[in-house]
Computed example of a mutant assay.
Amino acid sequence: MTNTTPVAPVTPAPPATHRFLVPAAAAVTVVLWGSAFIGIRSAGFDYSPGALALGRILVGTITLTVMAALARKLRLPRGRTLVGVIVWGVLWFGLYNLALNAAERTLDAGTASLLVGLAPILIAVFAGISLGEGFPARLLLGIGIAFAGVAGIALATSSGASGGVSVALGLAAAVIYAGSTMMQKRLLPKVESLTMTWLGCLAGTVACLPFTPVLLDELAVAPTSATLSMVYLGVFPTAIAFATWGFALTRTTAGRLGAATYAAAPLALLMSWALLGEVPTPIALVGGSLCLAGVLVATLKLR
């Protein structure tokens, strides 16, 4: 008698290299976002907050357009998803950059790093409550260790010159950072990550167009080094880093990926040391080590 019971299809195993793609994408994002502090410092003296934000994301949009065209992945969403992506882009690429650029005009480096360091904590809390990711003990422990490291870096680099308005702008940037991550995590199942990054950057660019006259005026007198720094910010920490961030966020939890960004602070210290000759203090080095230790604790299972 012949057995006619249907046999379930066998799903082929993913390539062995697939499990390394998410950590690799997260690492690219962290390294490039760490380098953004150097770029902002280099360009921020010659470009005002609005002009720098517009120039950066305009270059980012052009770069992402080329990337999307080469990848042939552009599939525009519709309806509420399209509106959501546009709102996300205005917040993440537009308002976040404006708030952070404006804050760093008068905010000392230590306070700025401490305020931005609140974002991964907010992401973990928001993700645990609204996305059902929960509050894994190792994630919370890692975030606590990493934030202690950020506090150490802040103590070492603070000049004590922090105005109330600048602090408020820094806090606003951290809240926008966390909220935008939550929005992106919810939208990614409905839209391809590179398409979302491209469309969001375009929306942020359109929102910043009122700064065009200021950008053109400052572009005419800014030194080449500052303009090249702005271009660098658009190509690498914006286009490439946000593309790899979207890829990783699609495939892991928001809490763990947010915790991974704590590694940007010690990387920025090392880059500043190597490129700008700014020798970190022992306290800053200890803080950087704590940041890296916390990231390892929180993201050991990043996949």
Rank of each mutant, 00 (worst) to 15 (best):
A137E: 11
A137G: 10
R138P: 00
R138W: 14
L139C: 09
G142N: 10
G142W: 14
A148C: 15
A148G: 15
G149E: 09
G149L: 02
A151F: 13
I153H: 10
I153V: 15
I153C: 12
A154M: 12
L155E: 11
L155V: 14
T157C: 07
T157I: 10
T157E: 13
S158Y: 04
S159F: 10
G160A: 10
G160K: 11
A161N: 14
A161V: 15
G164T: 14
V165I: 15
S166G: 13
V167Y: 10
V167K: 08
V167I: 15
L169V: 11
G170H: 08
A172K: 04
A173Q: 03
A173N: 13
V175K: 11
V175C: 08
I176V: 14
I176D: 03
Y177I: 04
G179T: 09
G179L: 03
G179A: 07
S180Q: 06
S180L: 05
S180E: 04
M182F: 08
M182W: 10
M182Q: 01
M183L: 15
M183D: 04
Q184V: 10
K185V: 01
R186Y: 09
L188S: 05
L188M: 12
P189N: 06
K190T: 12
K190G: 12
K190C: 06
V191D: 04
S193L: 12
L194E: 08
T195D: 08
T195L: 05
M196Y: 09
T197C: 00
T197K: 01
W198I: 09
L199Y: 02
G200W: 00
G200I: 00
G200Q: 00
C201I: 12
L202E: 03
V206M: 08
A207Q: 03
C208M: 15
C208T: 13
P210V: 14
P210Q: 13
P210T: 08
F211L: 02
F211G: 01
T212M: 14
T212L: 15
V214L: 09
V214Q: 09
L216Y: 06
E218M: 12
V221Q: 10
A222G: 04
A222H: 01
P223S: 11
P223A: 11
P223E: 13
P223H: 14
S225G: 06
A226T: 07
T227W: 11
L228H: 05
S229Y: 04
Y232G: 04
L233V: 07
L233G: 04
L233R: 03
L233K: 07
V235G: 03
P237H: 07
P237D: 08
P237E: 03
T238P: 00
I240F: 10
I240V: 15
I240G: 00
A241G: 04
F242C: 00
F242G: 00
T244V: 08
T244A: 05
W245T: 02
W245R: 03
G246Q: 03
G246D: 05
F247C: 02
F247Q: 03
A248C: 10
A248S: 13
A248G: 10
L249S: 01
T250R: 15
T250V: 08
T250S: 13
T253I: 12
A254V: 08
A254G: 01
A254D: 02
G255H: 04
G255S: 10
L257D: 01
G258W: 00
A259W: 02
A259C: 07
A260R: 06
A260V: 05
A260K: 05
T261H: 04
A263Y: 06
A264N: 12
A264G: 01
A264I: 05
